[in-house]
Amino acid sequence: MLSIVADEEGTMAQASAWLARLQRDDLTEADGLEFEAWLEADPTHRAAYRDALAAWQAFDTCADDVLEELAAQERRGARRPAPSRRWLVSAGGFAAAAALALALLPPMLTSSAAQTYATGKGEHERITLADGSVVDLNAETRLTVSYERSARRVVLEDGEAIFDVAHDAKRPFTVAASQRVVRVLGTQFDVRNRQGELTVTVARGKVQVEPADAAATDRAFVLRPGQRLAIAQTGRAQLQSVDPQETFGWRVGRLVYRGEPLENVVADLNRQFVDQIEIADPELGRMPITGVIVVDDQDAVVQRLSLMLPIRSVPSERGLLLLRK
């Protein structure tokens, strides 16, 4: 019974993927031929595609009316709490895909010119700050920047970013994340603050990481190029030598892992794609992965994963389920 449901959902996912692909701006005969091959591959494909098509075309004759209605709903619903709880129940984990667009939120009351930047799933954003410093934001990242006369302060609330900081000795540049402060001169480094774990990797210059609370007894660390500091949620710190370019790889869609548990790799991938990957059993999630994953097309990525580990994937309600082969 379960397998039939999974199959049906898989077919529906394929049908939707085809319909989306046929919307490409540069549609060619190759798309047509492959589409036909898929249609003919199984009699259920045609029916699923017609279902998807019906939903798609339902909007065609009344797109403007639907837009107007949406605008009207938004005006009425400005007071409404979080965007519809129904969604959470019906689609389970998909609510996680409720990502923030790059948003310029109103400045906080306490600070004169704080700006918040946020990226959603699969989004990378490069921001150039007033002093010429450049920050690359990874997916699902949120940070606040406030520049004052004698300080440049960034708060990395969640996520990962690479900072390329313009030198200005009179205005120290600090990044606060996970109860630590990263203090820099002119330098390039990556800060990652996810699930309570903080890592700082330095490519150039010198960086100091210290407890945000001056009274704390935790020690401070000074990092030099090629060093990475990882501080676990428990407070345990580990300093190691790394190739910074591996850590910076996400900026160009390359994730490099050395003995990283599969569950962490999957968590990274799930920030890049709409369809979410789940791991069937926890033991599988702990298997280590070493290698480079190029993040382009999700199917191709999963394909590559299955070459690194004895796993296979099946479609699931949220996206994909990884199973032991």
Binding site: S16, A55, A91, L102, E123, V274, D296
Partner: peptide, 30 residues
């Protein structure tokens, strides 16, 4: 798709993924 990608600041590939997922949800719902 290209214009949409530009407006949202993401790749065209990402737009196709969003559209695919949207179709799947809408088909199920409707």
């Amino acid at each position: 798709q290209a214009e949409t990608a530009q407006a949202m600041g993401v790749s065209v590939k990402m737009i196709e993924q969003h559209i695919q997922a949207a179709i799947r949800h809408l088909a199920q719902r409707l």
